[in-house]
Design a protein around this nucleic acid. Structure first.
Lengths: 208, 208
DNA sequence: ACTAACTCAAACACCATTGTTTGACTTCGG
DNA sequence: CCGAAGTCAAACAATGGTGTTTGAGTTAGT
């Protein structure tokens, strides 16, 4: 091996199987860490069907690997959320946002926990800040400014609550107390209540 | 030492300093684990100002110690919440409940994480179930039945959201994005919105 | 004051993990 | 088909945790 890059640099021209294995490793690491943030390199290697040493051939350390996985997942999330139409009726836009966020979160699982444990914490926040957070915060603030959402709770607080509720839904499903099919609508309903907005026509049922 | 009990059993009649040290250990473990769920026995011993071996003299293993701490904290929480008057106006009762819960949570920190990592998970849920959860769930269900809170979200979901929001508040304070003095009122305001209830007279400001 | 209870530092065995090296083996690419 | 690139099992050192033993020192209780 030349330099245990793990990312693109000059142009080492990796062989085809090497590139394929890097992909396997990243996918395996993503799956393992989503299940258990403390997954070891052996676990990941086994999941990838490769030798543990092979991983070190491409990623210099566990930290480097975790960082690569986090970047990858966050990039995918960013791309997925970029597709979401946040214009038009705020309540309808929120439902679309929740749907997309929910799908993304299902894939990531406890990966964020692994990240915050193995990374300097500045890396995690910086990676989140680039695009992802800004997009959601922008949606909340403009909807607040237009009067569609209440303004007495800060956009930061709303974002934090939003993320937390999504995670709660995942936990509740895991505990068997929430039907997976109802997760998205339950999250939307809860968020709409917090935001002080009426459900859009055809959306959630209004309480008596 | 006789039997490394850690709890009451027959009646070994511990000496005064032993009893005092057990108290020190439990307090130190509570503080350490609240800070870092992975705190080692050495960390805890240092925090208590005792030798590591002394801990093993009273608690047979790390798991036993963590379990004891969890029980202790949960008992204290249960006692604190037992003091709360949950009768009368539902919104006012909620504010009292939030206040008490917030105070309790401030002390526990990430201890619950430590518990779920070191304990068989059945122990944790069982310990929670005894009194604590039942009291809160009971409050939600009766308030829902009386029409004070919306009924289209399950009491389980509401409880989970409640706990999550309290934790979010702690994190946001930690990140410097939330004023500690406003935490309790922000939580109350958010929960009232979710519950579809109007703030009680003299409570939170209503959004336009 | 005397004894039993308790504490504690040091050293031990044990285990899981990370990260490295070696040398034989397999596969890609020209 | 041949050489370079890549893989991998085995073995290695280093680290850091848990749990135990020992033996000497300290403290409580009577």
């Amino acid at each position: 091996m030349r330099a245990t890059t793990g990312s693109r640099e000059g142009a080492p021209q990796l062989r085809a199987d090497a590139r394929r294995n890097i992909e396997l490793i990243l996918a395996a690491a993503e799956a393992c860490l989503a299940r258990n943030p403390d997954a070891s390199m052996s676990d990941i290697a086994a999941e990838a069907g490769l030798g543990r040493v092979t991983i070190y051939g491409h990623f210099a350390s566990r930290q480097v690997l975790v960082e690569a996985v986090v970047r990858r997942v966050l990039a995918a999330a960013d791309a997925a959320l970029d597709e979401v139409d946040l214009s038009g009726d705020a309540a309808a836009a929120l439902e679309r946002l929740v749907d997309a966020t929910w799908r993304v979160t299902m894939r990531s699982g406890s990966l964020l926990v692994a990240a915050e444990k193995a990374l300097p914490a500045t890396v995690v926040r910086q990676a989140h800040a680039g695009g992802l957070e800004e997009r959601v915060r922008g949606f909340f603030t403009t909807a607040q400014a237009s009067g569609a959402f209440r303004s007495d709770l800060s956009a930061d607080w709303l974002m934090a609550i939003f993320h937390a509720i999504v995670h709660v839904a995942a936990n509740e499903i895991d505990a068997g107390r929430l039907d997976p099919d109802q997760a998205s609508s339950t999250i939307t309903s809860t968020m709409l209540a917090i935001l002080g907005a009426s459900p859009f026509p055809g959306g959630e049922a209004t309480p008596a």
